[in-house]
């Protein structure tokens, strides 16, 4: 029996390592330990072994069985490893670039706009919106811009034919013309007419000027305006807001200054400069960034607020200009060409 067992083990040791897959393994295993297997057959002979020899024979068989199991386990483990290896395929080269497109990018104007909105939201401003097609009333009359003001001239403002109808842009008076808004201040008027003070809004949006397109001018561009209406609003509050905005945007060392100016819808009015020495491509100590002022009483009267009770300020700036300053972009047309090599730089 010992010889038989030895022969059996030798055969198993020789053939098991060569087995490639699970079905072959199972059939081979069955040839040894299956119901009709060789080892099973030897075990069945135990009944014929004389009683006094049985312990020794049993021991031999158990040993052989144990050794066979080692071979089987090893073979199974090897097959399992091979299966996983086959499933995995060759190792990746982690340095290869992903063939997937992406990542996507937000447009730099969106990035700047959203950053400004976040900064303003922290101090109580929510974002308002309004139509881009406007009427003379909302764009000019209500903002204390008299009918003969040069800004209203067809040389500077886009108008629609008198026959044009815009179903969802309301007119104040039937005779007024539709136009493309020249500033987002029309949103201030619509917001004030719709609601009651106090009001704190920021209105970013697209505006239109009849202008030659060049490195710094574009037929449409984007503005961002703030309007704050409450009791006892002061020039000092306005200055505090501007200081806050630009310190948040550009760092605490950034300073702003006001220069007196003239706008029809604010009194007093200012132009805002900020220290720019740390901005890319700016060589001047101060750079103009926007206009602001205290809301003119005539504007409050136009929307039915009592200027003796309510006061407020407004601030506006160009988003392209801000983005150009922040990123050091020197041509406004890049924003509208959307060359991916441009878009991918800011995300």
């Amino acid at each position: 029996m010992q010889d038989q067992l030895s022969a059996l083990l030798a055969k198993a040791a020789a053939e098991l390592p060569a087995i490639k897959n699970r079905p072959d393994f199972e059939s081979t295993k069955a040839r040894y330990v299956g119901p009709n297997g060789e080892l099973t057959a030897l075990m069945k002979q135990m009944g014929a072994v004389p009683k006094e020899q049985r312990p020794a024979a049993g021991k031999l068989i158990n040993e052989a069985k144990g050794q066979l199991q080692v071979h089987l386990d090893a073979a199974l483990a090897r097959i399992g490893d091979a299966e996983i290896a086959a499933q995995l395929g060759p190792a990746v080269d982690p340095t290869l670039a992903s063939p997937d497109f992406g990542p996507g990018t937000q447009h730099p104007l969106t990035l700047v706009r959203e950053e400004m909105c976040r900064i303003l939201r922290k101090v109580g401003f929510t974002v308002a919106d309004g139509p881009e097609v406007e009427t003379e009333y909302y764009c000019f009359d209500a903002l204390n811009t008299p009918s003969d003001h040069p800004a209203r001239d067809a040389k500077d403002t886009f108008y629609f034919p008198t026959t044009a109808r815009f179903g969802n842009v309301s007119k104040k008076v039937a005779e007024e013309r539709y136009l493309l808004r020249t500033h987002t201040s029309s949103v201030q008027i619509r917001t004030m007419l719709k609601g009651e003070p106090p009001i704190r809004i920021v209105s970013p949006g697209r505006v239109y000027r009849r202008d030659t397109t060049d490195a710094t001018h574009s037929a449409n561009f984007h503005q961002l305006e703030c309007l704050y209406v409450d009791k006892n609003v002061t020039v000092r509050d306005l200055k505090a807001l501007l200081d806050y905005i630009f310190a948040s945007l550009l760092g605490k060392e950034t300073k702003t200054r006001f220069r007196p100016h003239y706008f029809g819808y604010t009194e007093p009015s200012f132009e805002v400069d900020l220290t720019a020495s740390h901005l890319p491509k700016v060589k001047k100590p101060w750079i103009e960034i926007g206009g602001c002022g205290m809301v003119d009483p005539t504007v409050f009267e136009a929307v039915g607020y009592d200027p003796a009770v309510w006061s407020g300020y407004a601030f506006g700036m160009g988003l392209e200009r801000l983005a150009m300053l922040l990123y050091g972009i020197d041509d406004i047309r890049y924003f509208y060409q959307n060359d991916l090599r441009f878009l991918k730089q800011f995300a």
């Binding site: 996507g104 447009h107 509208y336 959307n338």
Partner: peptide
């Protein structure tokens, strides 16, 4: 979803 946001002229 890997789109690049663009800004085009309205006119």
């Amino acid at each position: 979803h890997d789109f690049h946001e663009c800004v085009n002229y309205t006119l």
